[in-house]
Amino acid sequence: MGDKRHIYTNKEPKRIQKRKNLKAVKIARYVIVGLAVAFALFPIVWTVLTSVKFPSDILHSPPIWLPKELTFAHYIGVQELNGYKSFKDSLIIAGLSTACVVVIGSLAAYSITRWKTGGKSFPFGLLTLRVLPPIAVVFPVFLFFKELRIIDTYLAIILMHLVFNLPFTVWMMRGFFREIPQEAQESARIDGCSEVGVFWRVVLPLAAPGLIVTAMFCFIFSWQEYPYALILARRRVIPLSVFLPSLFGQQMIMWGEVGAISTISMLPLFALGILARKYFVRGLTMGTVK
């Protein structure tokens, strides 16, 4: 796919544009990109800096840009507050819900692509589920889960994360499955492969890159999620998004620890983003554009 996508402006005949213009455009482009990068990075850098500043430097007027002394005490403070346990909870929730969603969602997506199950509007109908306001959904769910006695468990939160990740997975994977050439599937069928076999041995391996992108997005969405967790997480299970606000007391805001846990919370996603950066644009192209 990638080789087909040329960068169109490179093919423009140079004569149309004057050289001087070109240079100005180039400079302007770098200025804009520079500003965008600075704007995007600034709050992140500030958070990381906050996490290593001494408390007296954090709440300082005027603000201190570069602290003279650094401390890692806040990262230890996070440990005392059970922050790393929340990190683990978040990993478990995001990891398990992603694994579930990828398996279940691909099955459904394949069925929809291959046999047109559920008709033409079905995938879009599913997608609308994703946009339900979580607060509106979680409210009856809270009452319902209360009857089932599963509040404050991984299961409860994972189930709710499936609500927005399943439709997304079906939508994305449908895009990827459609791109898989029919011939490969047909020849497998002629060789006597069962439908399950075709799916498992032919279709899935071919769609693997798409699967990775989808999984990555699901992981991010689950990692970031707040409203469902806020209501379903209580004491035994406290993901990061719920842990963080607990650092804000009436009499003491632990900004240093807030900085530390924020920094820690970014790490897995940044790592994912950088590792899989080439899939990013590609994945979105397939999932949303097609």
Binding site: V33, A36, V37, A40, L41, P43, I44, W46, T47, T50, I220, W223, Q224, Y226, L240, S241, L244, P245, F248, W255, V258, S262, S265, M266, L269, F270, L272, G273, I274, R277, F280
Partner: peptide, 24 residues
Amino acid sequence: AALVMVVLPVMMLPIVVGYTWKLL
């Protein structure tokens, strides 16, 4: 490199974003 950096905000927890900006 610029692309990766510009895209980083999307990956932060919205609740973290909120509190970070509260301080800003």
